[in-house]
Amino acid sequence: MTKAISIALIVGGIVLLYFGGQAFNSVSSDVSRFFTGSPSNKAIVLIVAGVVATLAGLTGVALSGRRR
C-alpha cells in the first residue's frame, strides 16, 4: 500500500513540475518578472510542491524496499 502511495506522489510531483514550468513561462509570469524581478507566486508554489512531492515519493519507494 505504501509503495502505491509513493508512486502516486512521484506521478503527482511530476505533473506539478510540468504545470509549474508552464506557469513559469507564461505571459503573466513574464509580466511579474518585468516589474518585480521574480516569477509569479503560482509558478513558484507549483515547482516547490512538485519537488517536495517527488522527493517524498522517491523516499517512500526507497524505504519500502528496505523494510522486507
Score class of each variant (00 low, 15 high):
residue 1 M to A: 08
residue 1 M to K: 06
residue 3 K to T: 12
residue 4 A to L: 14
residue 4 A to Y: 13
residue 5 I to C: 06
residue 5 I to P: 00
residue 6 S to V: 09
residue 7 I to V: 11
residue 7 I to Y: 08
residue 7 I to D: 01
residue 7 I to M: 08
residue 8 A to V: 14
residue 10 I to M: 13
residue 11 V to H: 04
residue 11 V to C: 03
residue 12 G to C: 14
residue 13 G to W: 00
residue 14 I to D: 01
residue 14 I to F: 14
residue 15 V to F: 15
residue 16 L to D: 01
residue 16 L to Q: 09
residue 17 L to W: 05
residue 17 L to I: 11
residue 17 L to Q: 06
residue 18 Y to I: 15
residue 18 Y to G: 05
residue 18 Y to K: 05
residue 19 F to Y: 15
residue 19 F to Q: 09
residue 19 F to S: 07
residue 20 G to L: 11
residue 20 G to Y: 11
residue 20 G to P: 06
residue 20 G to T: 05
residue 21 G to K: 09
residue 23 A to S: 08
residue 23 A to Y: 01
residue 24 F to G: 00
residue 27 V to Q: 10
residue 28 S to F: 02
residue 28 S to Q: 09
residue 30 D to A: 12
residue 31 V to F: 08
residue 32 S to D: 10
residue 33 R to S: 12
residue 34 F to K: 06
residue 35 F to T: 07
residue 35 F to E: 07
residue 36 T to G: 10
residue 36 T to C: 04
residue 37 G to T: 06
residue 37 G to K: 01
residue 37 G to L: 08
residue 38 S to A: 14
residue 38 S to Y: 10
residue 39 P to K: 12
residue 41 N to Q: 10
residue 41 N to E: 12
residue 42 K to G: 02
residue 43 A to R: 01
residue 44 I to G: 02
residue 44 I to L: 11
residue 45 V to M: 14
residue 46 L to K: 00
residue 47 I to Q: 02
residue 48 V to N: 04
residue 50 G to C: 11
residue 51 V to M: 13
residue 52 V to H: 01
residue 52 V to L: 15
residue 52 V to F: 15
residue 53 A to N: 07
residue 53 A to E: 00
residue 54 T to V: 14
residue 54 T to F: 15
residue 55 L to T: 06
residue 56 A to T: 11
residue 56 A to V: 11
residue 57 G to C: 09
residue 57 G to F: 02
residue 58 L to W: 02
residue 59 T to S: 08
residue 59 T to A: 13
residue 60 G to W: 02
residue 60 G to T: 03
residue 60 G to A: 07
residue 61 V to C: 08
residue 62 A to C: 06
residue 63 L to E: 09
residue 63 L to S: 10
residue 64 S to H: 11
residue 65 G to Q: 12
residue 67 R to Q: 14
